[in-house]
Amino acid sequence: MVRRKLVLRFPASAVENPFVYTLAKEYNVVANILKANINPRKEGRLVVELYAEEKDYEAAIDFLQSRGVTILPLAQQIVWVEENCTQCGACTGICPTGALWIKRPEMTVSFDGEKCIVCEHCLKACPARAVEARYLSGE
């Protein structure tokens, strides 16, 4: 099985097609939408985690590209701005994967981008607003 986090960019002409439905129905791909910015007749953007058998995944990627969708890898989309962090630790109780975590015994807050699933719970759980979502990958 393959599990990948991607940023999909849809041209304005394709934005009204039901891609997630097609991925599930035709390609057996589980698409977990992490963030979406879709507006009629405008370029759309979807941050998505795809989960599928390897060959289904590849067929699905071919399908998306054939329809003009640009596919970018999702790398470090949540940015922890260390200089804004007050080192309180409030985010660590909310982060579901331990990407924001406390190093013990120092009790310092750290961020491990590898573990981040871009759920964005931290954005507003952080009292100092030291976590930002940036969708810049590959662009």
Binding site: T86, Q87, C88, G89, A90, C91, T92, G93, I94, I102, E106, M107, T108, P127
Partner: peptide, 11 residues
């Protein structure tokens, strides 16, 4: 249950 501080120990 997991615990989290609101007051910064390192600071």
């Amino acid at each position: 249950i997991p615990t989290a501080p609101l007051s910064s120990y390192p600071k």
